[in-house]
Every structure is written in C-alpha cells, then in structure tokens.
Write a protein that binds this DNA or RNA. Structure first.
Lengths: 180, 180
DNA sequence: CATCCCATGTAAAAAGTTACATGATTTG
DNA sequence: CAAATCATGTAACTTTTTACATGGGATG
C-alpha cells in the first residue's frame, strides 16, 4: 500500500506524469524503493478513483500524449496523516548478493573474493552517479525546506553505497586471512 | 526465485526444519532478506518435488513433529551454479521510513525531527542485538571458512545499522540548520 | 540502422502477505 | 493466566514482475 504514499509524496512536490514518477523511482529512489512502470500506472489509476489525484491531458504532436497528475487536498491530507501517525514498518530488503555471500562456504575463497570485487565495483559506480546528481541538484547545503526530502535521501544513498564498498574491502581482507 | 537459493544456502550448512530456516531469516538475515513462514514451507515443498532436498520426519511427544530437510547433491550443484554463474540482480529495498523522509516537506521541521529520532533509536536497538549475537557466535575473527557467510553478513548488518544511525544524526542536524 | 527516449497501458504469471487452523509446553 | 515458543500447513488475497502492445523522434 505504501507505493500509494510514495507517489503522493512525489506529487506533493509538483504535478507530474506517471513516466516522470517511475523515472524518479528508477534513478533517485533505488536505495529505498523499487517499482515498475506497470505498477505506477495501475496505482495512479486507483488513486484517481479515490479522489487523491486529478489529471490533465497534454496533447503532443510527434510524441505520445501525457497525463499530468496533481495531488488533491484529500490526497495531501491522507499523505500527512500517514506520514505522522502510522508506524513505519521495518524495511524489507531483497539483496541477492548478500544471499550469495551468506553461502560462500560452498565455493572457494578465490571465487568468493571475485564476487565481492565485482560488487565493490558496482557500488563505486553508484556512489559516483549519485554524488554527481546530488552536487548538480543542490547549490546550498542544506537546501530550502521544500527540497529537504531529496537532499536527505540522496545522502542516504551515497552513505549506503560507501558503506557497502568499505564492507567489501573488509570482507576481502577477512576472507584472505582464513588459512586453507 | 531466489528464496530457493537462500534456503539451499542455509541447508548447505546443516539439515534443518522449515521453522529453523524461517527463524534465521527473521533474526539474522533481516538486513538482506525478508520472508514469512508460509512462503518458506511452500517453497520447501516445491524444492522437495524438484529433488533439491529430502526430509526425515522426527516424531516428538508433547511438541509437534518435525520435518528435517537435507540438501541433495543436485541441490548443491544448482546452488553453486547459481552462486558463481548468475549475475546478482540489483537489491530491491522497500524502506517506508525513507519514503516518509522523502516527503518531509509536507510536515514541519519539528515533526520531521521527531520521526528521525524514533528511527535512530530503532537502529540503536538493532546494532546492540546484532553485535551481541555476533560476539556470541564467533570466538575467532575471522572464523573457520564454513562459517564465513554468517560472519560476513552479521558484520554487514551492524555496519548498515550504524550507518543508519549516523545518517539520522546528520539528518537531524541538517534539518535544524534550515531557517524558518 | 539499431537502440534509446518518450509515454501509456493491459494481461498473465509469480511472489509475497495475512488470516485461518491446531495444540502442548514454557515463561513471565 | 496471558503470551510466547515450538511446529506445520492451507486459503485467500495483495503485490510485484514480466511480457505484450504501440509508435514517432533522436542519438550514435
């Protein structure tokens, strides 16, 4: 159900299309929310039925028409209610790499280290990308309060990926220490 | 599909019941894998059909009977194949708190700080618990190679929760800096 | 000339959650 | 004496993913 609030939170910043919303999940929100375009479009449909959003159609020549969704006062009320009064359920994480790591005992130390090295590289790319986006997006630190959310979560993403990199270094070192 | 490999990885360590496996997800693996008992039992049934596991029934007086699952050679082969040769798909995270954080602009600075403080406390409890478990579980660092998985992922959990705590402190400070 | 970007949606399948169902023993 | 632990499972439901469907314009 919280995909609904994720979308309302984004629409509370500015009116947007489903495409825009999905794009934000895919790029900026990967550290804490994952979704697909089909889910976004479906939920937007339901939200409109429940009067949490309205939309205007923008007809475009050459490219497909757009539906620009706007949050309604009812939508805003429900968002704030959820934000403050509902307990945050514990995060649900599905990290395939760590499942692999938890089973390293079935492969050799060398193969395990190879997998960790690959993961390290992956996270180095992520840090770079997010840092770049953050630097370009925020001139002042901290930014004005209406951009606080993106600022806080971008920093979380960078810290998360950096922690992952440091853990990879540590893990490679620990694995290497174990005698054959 | 990777619940299957998560279970195979655990069974590769030692034969266990569905109850044991679920318990491990719930306690040690919360940082990177979430599941429910109904899903575990269902998947164990399917895995047995596919000859990846076998089970022995242990009849108990006073308490319910147990099914102790053991991984088969076929199961081990498939686990190793998956571990080494399949690419790790990017982690999928659903963190309700960070969804809230991304929408802090719709509530006051004070309310936002209250939410962050609560999250900080939550993660402090987690660090304590995991650190305790890790200290009790591993006498030597690094442990023998057949326990490397738990050792590595427990450390990941601790680092993750500590990173979260530090981010909370940073976030509270940044929010406070913003003028009204 | 292939692939990516824009832009929206539907259908089917898979994965995951919640509730129902049982019941003795242990702990606070 | 209420709640938690052990122990397994099914049924109904919700959520999520993958594939199908379309098509012009821009980029390399």
């Amino acid at each position: 159900m919280s995909i609904r609030y994720a979308l309302l939170g984004l629409l509370a910043k500015k009116p947007q299309t489903g495409y825009d919303l999905f794009h934000t999940f895919k790029t900026q929100h990967i550290y804490f929310w994952s979704s697909t375009h089909s889910q976004v479009y479906k939920e937007l449909g339901k939200m409109e039925e429940d009067d949490l959003t309205t939309f205007d159609v923008v007809y475009q020549e050459g490219s497909p028409n757009k539906k620009i969704y706007t949050i309604t006062p009812k939508g805003e009320r429900q968002l704030i209610q959820w934000l403050i009064h509902e307990e945050s359920k514990p995060a649900k994480i599905k990290d395939e790499f760590l499942i692999r790591a938890s089973a390293f005992h079935v492969i050799s130390k060398e193969e395990a280290i190879t997998l960790v090295r690959k993961m390290k590289k992956h996270n180095q790319n992520i840090v770079q990308g997010t840092q770049l986006w953050k630097d370009q997006s925020f001139q002042t630190a901290p930014p004005p309060y209406d951009h606080i959310g993106d600022y806080l979560t971008a920093e979380f993403g960078i810290r998360y990926a950096k922690m992952y990199i440091e853990w990879c270094d540590w893990a490679i070192n620990e694995i290497s220490k174990i005698p054959n």
